[in-house]
Amino acid sequence: MSPAPQPANGRVVLPANCTIHGARALQAHLLEQLELPGPCEIDGGSVQHVDTAGVQLVLAFALDCLERNLQYVWKSRSAALEEAIRVLNVGALLEYPA
């Protein structure tokens, strides 16, 4: 039986421009969140532009969370982000296993 979701301590807000152009800043933001204890919430609702570099960063973050047993939950995803995740077919990798 999977553990009940805990209230999020951290919150990752993906920027509107989630592309290679802002990749270093997003990486820094994600690394900060990794250092926080407890579950975190990812908000991708305001992403307007996204590319592979942006998705790959979020994916690396998600994989690190799994390795550290840090729970995360998706709060929302914009249509642009959903489309990119679908085309790159990384949806399953981005979900925290139930």
């Binding site: 990486q27 690394l31 990798l93």
Partner: peptide
């Protein structure tokens, strides 16, 4: 039908964000 392979994506800290490892 697309299948992504992420096995070469390193930990976030070691990832060069401008390099595609997928």
């Amino acid at each position: 039908e697309v299948r992504a392979d992420a096995k070469w994506v390193p930990p976030l800290r070691e990832l060069d964000p401008e390099e595609c490892r997928l």
